[in-house]
């Protein structure tokens, strides 16, 4: 959508910046298809001469690396992938839904006072590690450690400040008279919000959902301290590919990282069309 032609200098600068940003992605992609001998070779091997899918196979079949003489991979990643999908999708949905109602309440019905921003954001003012400890203690007392219910509850609690605050700004940007016109035209308050307010902040809703999903999808610490055997997520699983006998399984880690990128790329691609601002142009007098 760039309408302006770039100068050579600008293009070179952009290319350099892109190279810096994309290099780790390139390296992960390459490592994911390297056989074990190339993983940590010195000098480094940029592109494998014999690309292989064995790393991906190992994710779901821990014995697949035996043919390369690498053993000790104990656990399949299946549970972690399912666990991540379950926790992230459920927690994101809940966080965005609750955040949406809170945002409309704050923006439209004065459900706030001077301390509301502080109260909402206070949970984010401490390093997560500081609040992880009390969570572990409380959860073990009420039997929520090593359960998806507990993990999802934490994810919702941790992301709700962001979803509420982001969505509030999108609701604030929408002139309230548009939904009020619908109320006067014959809709109940709740219906006016469902059929007018929410569709008109669609772009913001998508953006918020994606942001919250990324937070949940990549969360490591809470998942680590709250999971033992029942619960696993991709970031936790990534840390498990450090074996006593074969050292760190870089290729397998890379393969799982590549898999973990897939949903983000898909969501990112789907979202870009909705991010455009100016949805309400023409609705009100400028």
């Amino acid at each position: 959508m760039l309408s302006k032609k770039l100068t050579l200098f600008q293009a070179a600068l952009l290319a350099a910046a892109l190279a810096v940003v994309l290099f780790p992605v390139f390296w992960i992609l390459m490592t994911a298809i390297k056989p074990p001998t190339d993983w940590n070779a010195s000098p480094a091997i940029w592109m494998p001469s014999q690309p292989t899918l064995v790393n991906f196979k190992t994710l779901f079949d821990p014995d697949a690396l035996k043919e390369y003489g690498v053993g000790g991979v104990s656990q399949s990643a299946t549970k972690a992938v399912i666990g991540s999908l379950l926790a992230s999708i459920t927690a994101t949905t809940l966080s965005v839904l609750i955040g949406l109602f809170a945002a409309i309440g704050i923006s439209r019905y004065g459900a706030e006072n001077k301390s509301t921003p502080l109260v909402i954001l206070s949970g984010r003012m401490f390093p997560p590690a500081a609040i992880a400890v009390p969570f572990v203690i409380i959860f073990s007392n009420i039997g929520l450690t090593d359960s998806y219910v507990g993990l999802i509850a934490i994810y919702v609690a941790a992301t709700l400040p962001f979803s509420t605050w982001m969505l509030k700004s999108f609701v604030d940007d929408l002139p309230r008279e548009i939904e009020e016109a619908a109320m006067i035209d014959g809709k109940s308050r709740i219906k006016a919000h469902l059929t007018v307010t929410i569709p008109l902040i669609r772009g913001g809703l998508f953006a918020t959902t994606m942001f919250i999903f990324i937070l949940n999808w990549s969360e490591f610490m809470f998942a680590l301290v709250l999971s033992y055997s029942n619960v696993s997520t991709i970031p936790v699983q990534l840390a498990k590919y450090v074996t006593a006998t074969a050292g760190t399984l870089y290729g397998v880690q890379a393969a799982l990282a590549v898999l973990a990128m897939v949903p983000l790329v898909i969501v990112g691609y789907l979202i870009q069309g909705h991010l455009a601002r100016g949805m309400t142009f023409g609705a009100i007098k400028q």
């Binding site: 008279e177 548009i178 009020e180 006067i184 109940s188 308050r189 007018v196 949805m279 609705a283 007098k285």
Partner: peptide, 20 residues
């Protein structure tokens, strides 16, 4: 009473048309 039950019509000063 909700606005819809008041049997009124209103024109807002910023018009508030449905943009979509």
């Amino acid at each position: 009473w909700e606005p819809k039950d008041r049997d009124i019509a209103m024109i807002f000063d910023n018009l508030a048309l449905y943009p979509n």
